[in-house]
Write a protein that binds this DNA or RNA. Structure first.
Length: 1007
RNA sequence: GCGCGGUUAGCUCAGUGGUAGAGCACUACAUUGACACUGUAGGGGUCACAGGUUCGAACCCUGUAUCGCGCACCA
């Protein structure tokens, strides 16, 4: 490191060290190395979407994980940070479909399922690795040899095994239900994929005529067109109904009122004439008036139209009253023929307008009011959800109670700290087994949100009408052919709620290959159906040859993600295999999960349930929820706003370390982050400061890390050693509490303010300016000792910095020669494995004479420096002009301290005069360490100086009075603890001393 | 409607009952200095508001305002 450049150039070192770490397998976890002395530490990455590119959110998230992983390595643990990507069903299918349409003007249906999936894989091979390479640029120390993908071979087997297991237990079932249908992507969605958005729309009031009918014959099928009545009598009464969705009127099969509503109760049992479709004859549009408690008679007119096929609440009313369901829409959100001629084929929003026109034409529309309501939107496609009746696969969540109870809630007053410095383990922060096997959320308030959701959990709709994803391992056949009829007779019969009625068979007759078979009568058409579930490929082939067809749907992406913590570690579901899996045994459960609170339900909660269900243990002990990254104005970062900076640009401009440091510095626990590029600039500046501080050390020459002789230590040396000790302790606390912004604040303060601004400047007094070889023997010894202290500080500092700034610290670790003295596996090869600094213990402190008293004296002396500089400034003395100060010390100061004072005040001399009497042309200040005088050669500006002193006096008076008043209050003096009282007395004495001093100075000027 | 979080310097935020803090920004001064990606000094706050508890409140309690988020929703 002879010719180091003046400024740190990250571009020239980052790639070099990343490759160095990879070449030496520094990130590779080996379960064989795990022991009681070398405990395991593991994190699984929240797998980014294969379609993803690195965002600021990823930077935040992965920097935290990398910090945790690197810190754990330095703590001497065997670390596994397991990386990978998620196949992201809808997102990826969308990306490839758009590309297809743009480049080949084809739809996925034009290609066909098989060909389309081939294209997605090809796309994945080509572009799916982008985010991984970007994470490497950031410095992430993941074990890339274990990189996983949620659709790789082994993972596929995990998903199928889990599906079969849950099916066996009757937790996975198929059912015709109201689901959240996305008309844009044409698939069902889970409740979590729906976001409520406030919409400005209209509330339409229309009237319907009440009629008396008798002899109604209910229709055999959902279509109402066959309904017949013997008599239809007009009553002349009209009811008014308010709705936001007039286009669904053709799907109405009842009108509901609250049975307790005196206005309408009398109509229950009568019918109304549904106004649409207009061209249908009246007798085909008679729908009953029913009484249902659900109806709120405060809202609208108190009369509710009931559309069981297109509204969740209406569906339930329909179930209660056995109402027919009329589906008036195609899956793409366009109206079908049941909606009537003018609406047929129209998009649902266009249809709304037309429906209003039709109602107006027939005179049924009474009024239209502006109205704001909340509408569910498909999170990904950003279009309103259409509640739709459809047959889907559902999961009744397993392990709900266990999962719910394992997360510690805030009201648990038993200590919340779960990791603490363990004195037995050389001061390292250790994992203390959580009480009652509990899991901890950071910040803890998310536990309440989690608990609330777990308490109101609904079955999970897991099937998606997509092509890209894990295909549902279920095969169907209708027993039409003789072969299947014979087959079905050999297998158990089951009802429609058949999940519990399967039987296990080997269709292929190969040992170990099995299928779950159930046979049932379809309720709608009476046909005999056979449903077979298997995870076996052999069985699947057999099924295919027998004429079975596989369920066309795929599973929700999160149905694979929820297995991530153990599926990535090679879990098979086979107990004996898994108990011989060293990775799983060593690294599950993981220690920390770092993720955003936006996926607490999507992912975190589900992983916890899966952990209990399949591993019989929680998947992680701590969950750290990051904030959400916003721009300077507090807006969420998004592509459309264009307010999201490209992290790679920032790395190119400032360096990865700068980006990491800047991000961590502005990311307090539990708060959203307002991102400002200035933070990254600050990180860059900080790296440069570190660089130059090391450069300064290099310029001093001498051997690296020489012995420190306690006898030669200056008060400044002792002071900085104590500050280092404090910084180490603060860092440990910050890690225990997951407060990374506190950690960076500590590093910043310690290194920049305490080390560079004070210690290095003061050390120049001991280092001297003489050339090497021109120094006296005594100077030489003193110089060497100071350099040894500097090396001690720097070698510790670099290690404290390493988790945050991996690249520059590695470069300097080698450049400064600190690697050389260390054992190969403890910092000799790389700073990554250097031991994390321990707080200085009592033996160390007494050996080197480090005392709180000495620390205070240096701080008092430094205050004198600041005050003296202030005097210079007030006297308008140029910063580069050498002047003479006179010091009247409060207690004796060492010659070395006087020399430091002289240096830091840029003084020609600091003369110590215990009986100094200032002349008129002298400015002065009192500090705890003594009185400092600045005699001026010319006449001082008496007016200006008096103004300054008067202002000063005012301030002092105010402070002194405040304390005086407190002390004069007997209530205070009697009730307050002794130490506080003593402190106040001392403070008063201090202010009084200053007051006298300033008064004396004023008097001298006036004379 | 229910729940959660915020409101402290121009900005972004620390601050768990005892002298109101940091970084940035701002002003002034200093370029043969490890570093201008720098140094030194300075100005700047009624801690959202109103009550209460206390010798003492930014901090604890009650209420209000306001911003943000989550959950549940009335068609």
């Amino acid at each position: 490191m002879s010719e180091i450049p003046k400024a740190y150039e990250p571009q020239s070192v980052e790639d070099k060290w990343y490759q160095f770490w990879l070449d030496r397998k520094c990130f590779t976890a080996d379960p064989a190395r795990v022991s009681t002395k070398r405990p395991a530490y593991s994190i699984v990455i929240p797998p980014p979407n294969v379609t993803g590119v690195l965002t600021m959110g990823h930077v935040l998230n992965n920097t935290i994980q990398d910090i945790l992983a690197r810190k754990a390595r330095m703590d001497g643990r065997e670390v596994l940070w397991l990386p990978g990507t998620d196949h992201a069903g809808i997102a990826t299918e969308g990306v490839v479909a758009r590309l297809l349409s743009k480049e080949e003007k084809k739809s996925k249906r034009d290609l066909g399922r098989e060909e389309f999936i081939k294209r997605v894989w090809a796309w994945k091979e080509k572009y799916g690795g982008i985010i991984i390479s970007q994470l490497k640029k950031l410095g992430c120390s993941c074990d890339w040899t274990r990189e996983r993908f949620t659709m790789d071979e082994a993972y596929l087997r995990c998903v199928q095994r889990v599906f079969v297991e849950l099916y066996k237990k009757g937790l996975i079932y198929r059912g015709k239900r109201m689901v959240n249908w996305c008309p844009a992507t044409q698939t069902a969605l889970s409740d979590e994929e729906v976001v409520m958005k406030e919409q400005k729309g209209s509330l339409y009031y229309f009237k319907v005529e009440v009629v008396d009918c008798s002899g109604a014959v209910s229709a055999p099928s959902p279509a109402v067109t066959d309904r017949r009545y013997n008599e239809i009598n007009t009553t002349g009464v009209w009811l008014t109904i308010a709705t936001t969705r007039p286009e669904t009127i053709p799907g109405d099969t009842a009108v509901a009122v609250n049975p307790k509503d005196p206005r309408y109760a009398k109509f229950i049992g009568k019918h109304v004439v549904r106004p649409l479709p207009a061209e249908f004859p009246r007798e085909q549009k008679l729908i009953p008036i029913i009484g249902d408690e659900h109806v709120d008679f405060e809202f609208g007119t108190g009369v509710l139209k009931v559309t069981p096929a297109h509204d969740k609440a209406d569906f339930e009313i329909g179930q209660r009253h056995n109402l027919p369901q009329i589906d008036i829409m195609h899956p793409n959100g366009h109206m079908n023929e049941l909606a009537g001629g003018p609406l047929n084929g129209l998009d649902r929003f266009k249809a709304r307008k037309v429906a209003v026109e039709l109602l107006t034409e027939m005179g049924a529309l009474e009024k239209e009011e502006p109205y704001t309501n909340n509408v569910g939107f498909s999170e990904r496609a950003d279009v309103p959800i259409e509640p739709r009746l459809s047959e889907q696969w559902f999961l009744k969540y397993p392990g709900v109670e266990k999962a719910r109870n394992c997360v510690e809630q805030a009201d648990d007053s038993e200590g919340r700290v779960i990791r603490g410095p363990n004195p037995e383990s050389q001061g390292l922060a250790e994992l203390v087994p959580p009480k009652n096997g509990k899991m901890h959320f950071h910040p803890q308030r998310w536990a309440k949100v989690y608990d609330h959701w777990m308490g109101n959990i609904q079955d999970w709709c897991i099937s998606r009408q997509l092509w890209w994803g894990h295909r549902i391992p279920v095969w169907h056949a209708v027993a039409k052919s003789n072969e299947l009829r014979t087959f079905s007779e050999n297998y158990p019969k089951a009802s429609i709620s058949k999940a519990e009625f399967w039987a296990e068979y080997s269709l292929s007759e190969i040992k170990g290959e099995t299928s779950l078979v159930s046979v049932y009568q379809n309720r709608d058409d009476g046909e005999t159906r056979i449903e077979v579930v298997t995870e076996s490929e052999v069985e699947a082939r057999k099924l295919q040859s027998m004429g079975f067809t596989q369920d066309p749907d795929v599973l929700d992406t999160w149905f694979s993600s929820w297995l991530w913590p153990f599926a990535t570690m090679g879990w098979t579901g086979d107990k004996s295999q898994d108990s011989n899996n060293p990775t799983l045994q060593a690294f599950y459960p993981t220690n920390d999960l770092v993720t955003g609170p936006d996926i607490i339900f999507f992912w975190v909660a589900r992983m916890i349930m899966a952990g209990y269900e399949f591993m019989e243990d929680l998947p992680f002990r701590n969950v750290y929820f990051t904030g959400i990254i916003r721009d300077k104005q507090g807006r969420k970062m998004s592509k459309s706003l264009g307010n999201s900076p490209d992290p790679l640009d920032l790395i190119g401009k400032y360096g990865a370390d700068a980006l990491r440091f800047g991000t961590m510095r502005s990311a307090p626990l539990g708060q959203d982050i307002l991102f400002d590029e200035q933070n990254v600039e600050l990180g860059r500046n900080f790296c440069n400061k570190l660089w130059n501080a090391c450069r300064f050390r290099q310029m001093q020459g001498g051997e690296a890390q020489g012995e420190i002789d306690p006898k030669l230590l200056t008060a400044d040396d002792k002071w900085i050693l104590l500050k280092l000790d404090q910084a180490i302790r603060e860092m440990d606390t910050a890690f225990v509490e997951y407060k990374f912004s506190d950690a960076t604040a500590t590093l910043y303060r310690f290194f920049w303010s305490e080390y560079c601004d004070w210690y290095v400047e003061a050390s120049k007094a001991a280092l001297g300016s003489a050339e090497r070889g021109m120094r006296s023997a005594e100077q030489e010894t003193r110089h060497a000792n100071t350099v040894a202290v500097i090396d001690f500080i720097l070698s510790h500092t670099l290690r404290l910095f390493h988790p945050f700034l991996p690249f520059i610290t590695e470069e300097l670790w080698h450049g400064m020669g600190y690697a050389e003295d260390m054992p190969e596996n403890q910092g000799g090869q790389t700073i990554m494995s250097a031991p994390w600094p321990k707080p200085l213990d009592d033996d160390f402190k007494s050996h080197y004479g480090l005392t709180g008293d000495g620390e205070k004296q240096i701080e008092a002396r430094n205050e004198l420096v600041s005050q003296g500089r202030n005097l210079r400034r007030n006297a308008n003395i140029a910063a580069n002009k050498k002047v003479r100060f006179i010091l009247k010390p409060a207690r004796e100061l060492a010659a070395h301290d006087i020399e430091v004072l002289r240096l830091l005040l840029n003084a020609e001399a600091v003369e110590v005069k215990t009986d100094y009497q200032p002349s008129k042309n002298t400015m002065t200040v009192r500090a705890e360490a003594g009185d400092l005088f600045l005699p001026l050669e010319g006449l001082i500006d008496v007016e200006a100086e008096m103004t300054r002193l008067k202002k000063e006096l005012e301030k002092i008076e105010a402070e002194a009075t405040k304390v005086e008043q407190k002390l004069a209050n007997p209530n205070f003096t009697q009730k307050v603890p002794a130490n506080v009282l003593e402190e106040h007395k001392q403070r008063l004495a201090e202010w009084q001393g200053k007051r006298e001093h300033v008064k004396a100075a004023l008097a001298a000027l006036e004379s």
